[in-house]
Design a protein around this nucleic acid. Sequence first.
DNA 1: GAGGCACAATGATGAGGATCAAGTTAAAAT
DNA 2: ATTTTAACTTGATCCTCATCATTGTGCCTC
Lengths: 236, 236
Amino acid sequence: MCTAFHNASCLNCQARFGSILFKAEKCNLEEIEAAKVCSVYKKGQVVFQEGAYPFGIYCVNTGKIKLSHCGDDGREQIVRLAKPGDIIGYKALLSAERYTASAIALDDASVCFIPKDLFMSILQKDASLSFEMMRIIASELRKAEVKITHLSQKPVRERLAETLLFIKETYGVETDGFTLNVRLSREEIANLVGTATESAIRLLSEFKKDGLIELQGKKIRLLNTEEITRTANLQD
Amino acid sequence: MCTAFHNASCLNCQARFGSILFKAEKCNLEEIEAAKVCSVYKKGQVVFQEGAYPFGIYCVNTGKIKLSHCGDDGREQIVRLAKPGDIIGYKALLSAERYTASAIALDDASVCFIPKDLFMSILQKDASLSFEMMRIIASELRKAEVKITHLSQKPVRERLAETLLFIKETYGVETDGFTLNVRLSREEIANLVGTATESAIRLLSEFKKDGLIELQGKKIRLLNTEEITRTANLQD
DNA sequence: GAGGCACAATGATGAGGATCAAGTTAAAAT
DNA sequence: ATTTTAACTTGATCCTCATCATTGTGCCTC
């Protein structure tokens, strides 16, 4: 499956990535550090599965994770992209319900697991941590609401452009300054945009024809961010 | 504009509606009570406006509030319906940004205002309150993600049925057990579903023809909840 | 009661985008 | 290297749904 081990460098890890856990009081962070278990997931492996009950939360150490929500007809909708420092699986834990999304590694990734009881108890006594958690979730919620509006009001073309910018914002670009620093399948891009795979493909080649992007297998280079932004037609 | 006054019955109000604020430690709740200002808004009046900076949060005392997000083309998307006991305007406050949605009274409503500084300072020291806040926001986020999935995968017909059930869940029904306990314009229903007004109207009359609902002006009676649920095609 | 106004309803039309089908490339497995 | 499989691409078709246009209905004002 995946190798599990204790990662002694938790403090370093948090500091490096500015993770939320770093906001916890020191003694609590140390407690987390002692209890956590770090696991390595290969690309495509499932960190947790929609419908399962949560036993704790996860903090992404390295790699990239997609959180996707399976629709009734079986098609997936990617609701979030997580990067190192991000925590995932907190919504189900907080609302004490089953996962509404699956977490799947986009890369080889290492993810720390923090047991439910520990995390919850710390959360209840550590106002600083829960305050920070709240801010993060609130910001996620804002993003989700904007996405809802755009889904119901914007055409696929604009949403695709927006998604490309979002990917860049989330995972950044490679050293050349153009290539998106993640390999997503066309289907995954479509599931992020909320459209059919064929539509995503078609529009990507249009963007390419128009000189906005360059395609090379799964590599996507954003050549003209200006124009992509204009295509996304963002007001706010 | 709207009458503002101190409402001595805050403790009662919270208790009655099981508001989140009731989770605050007692001394903090008293502090909130002392500082809050209650205002009355007439139907259609704006509690806060998208784009403005937040000065505090609001707790709905009586009445119904819609939170709507204005799309780039000016069409509104209703992202939430608030009822007595709910707090609104917290996302902008927590993320220290401008409102991304406007709050507008659907009814004559009375809403309590709690100043920013007070609320934030309490939140940072009151782990119990911020924990509860977190749970609420997390649950909102879950709902939002489901909505995103449905928006991108389900046809309007199913989404309308789902919306009717959602309205029932949120505001309940009148004493007859059928009539939705809120008056929304067709446009508002459409903006809740995420579709054109005409489409909402057309489908509503289809539902009526099929005996699922009864229409009488703005009154909507859910005659056959069973069948509406089936039409909504909910799996999860 | 006549006029005006907002909202509701219905019809006609067209475009955007999903779906189906077929062919192509790329990657993985043997 | 060859087969197998999966992912990508492109074309053709169909259908949902948005848009435009028109008429109908209730409601308030004068």
